Computed example of a mutant assay.
Amino acid sequence: MVATPIGNLNDLSPRAAEVLNSVDYIACEDTRKSGHMLQHFGISKPTFSFHQHNEHRKVSHLMNILDANQNVALISDAGMPGNLRSGIFSCSRSSTRRSYRKRNSRFPMQQQRL
């Protein structure tokens, strides 16, 4: 989970930009809004929508990415993804069942078995 700027795009931390550049995929609350931020920083990674209205369909897609030994960062429109937003609760529950380690902001969500 990676924190994104709430207002000024230049508030994105260097570490957050590094993480977003290093992952294989980026799961976004809204790909249009996130796409603007990613383009601003020259980050070109495959994105897919992941939010409270599609989480039940997208959790399996996200788990398939992790099962393939790839990394995914989860971002919201602005700020830190929270348990009640962006389908994070379902994602967290599914990844815990599969023994994946979750990391907030400092590192991308990686396929690491506990």
Rank of each mutant, 00 (worst) to 15 (best):
T4L: 09
P46R: 07
Q110P: 03
I26Y: 02
S44I: 10
S95W: 00
L74N: 00
R15Q: 08
M37F: 09
V59T: 15
I6T: 12
Y25W: 11
L12A: 15
Q110R: 14
N21S: 14
D67M: 01
G82L: 10
S49H: 10
T47E: 03
A16N: 09
S34P: 06
H56D: 10
D11W: 02
L84E: 11
S94F: 04
P46C: 04
M80A: 08
F50G: 00
S60H: 07
I6H: 07
L84F: 11
L84Y: 15
N21Q: 13
M109I: 14
Q52C: 09
F107V: 05
A3H: 12
P46A: 00
S94L: 08
Q110C: 15
R15F: 07
I6V: 15
L66A: 07
K102D: 06
S76C: 12
Q39K: 13
D77P: 05
M37W: 06
R101C: 11
Q70G: 01
T31I: 12
F41V: 00
Q112T: 13
S60L: 04
E55F: 01
F89Y: 12
N69D: 15
G42C: 01
H61N: 08
R93K: 14
N64L: 03
A27P: 03
D77R: 03
H53C: 02
T4N: 04
S99L: 14
N104P: 07
Q111S: 15
R98W: 00
S94N: 10
P14N: 12
S44H: 15
G42Y: 09
V23P: 02
L62G: 00
N83R: 14
R15K: 13
L20M: 12
R85S: 13
F50R: 01
I88W: 13
A68F: 04
E29M: 07
P14C: 01
R103Q: 05
D77V: 08
